[in-house]
């Protein structure tokens, strides 16, 4: 019995898509979510869309959190979303953060990616965002 009235820990995937080596933010988020009682699968840097989607499936996570500062988000996000669709994954919270220019945010949200968090976001905000946006039925996992 950990947090948020859930009978089990929330499981999240923290991933760094593409060739982006900026991993400070991802590591800070991973630690903050662990300290908030979540199980965080951290994949490390240089993840292809295929790796991210396959890991999310195998690990049966409640959320995919992508951190990207390289500017390649508009090339990578659509591929990831497409692969999730192909695999009929539709109950996972998908969120992103890093350097995401304001003008790209509407298009990112349009893809079904919730929450775009830039530099300076507090870890409290990220924790409560994850807790509040995970799809309710996932926490009572049905077969």
């Amino acid at each position: 019995m950990v947090e948020n009235q859930t009978a089990r820990p929330i499981r999240v995937l923290v991933a760094k898509p593409g060739l982006d080596g900026h991993d400070r933010g991802a590591k800070i988020i991973a630690r903050a979510l662990r300290d908030a009682g979540m199980e965080v699968i951290y994949t490390g840097i240089r993840q292809t869309p295929e790796m991210i989607v396959e890991a999310a499936i195998q690990e049966d996570v409640d959320a995919i959190l992508m951190s990207i500062l390289s500017g390649a988000h508009m090339a990578l996000f659509p591929k990831i979303i497409e692969l999730l669709k192909q695999n009929e994954v539709d109950d996972i919270l998908i969120a992103a953060g890093g350097i995401l220019p304001d003008e790209d945010i509407p298009a990112i949200k349009q893809m079904g990616i919730q929450g775009c968090f830039g530099p300076g976001t507090s870890t409290e905000e990220i924790i409560s965002f994850v807790r509040n946006n995970i799809q309710g039925e996932r926490l009572s996992v049905e077969a």
């Binding site: 820990p9 662990r34 994949t43 490390g44």
Partner: peptide, 21 residues
């Protein structure tokens, strides 16, 4: 699992990257 928070960082996949996918 962290005995303090009940959370965990599961990092073994970092080393298994070439198997991913």
């Amino acid at each position: 699992t962290s005995p303090f928070s009940g959370g965990a960082i599961l990092g073994d996949r970092i080393r298994m990257m070439e198997l991913a996918g």
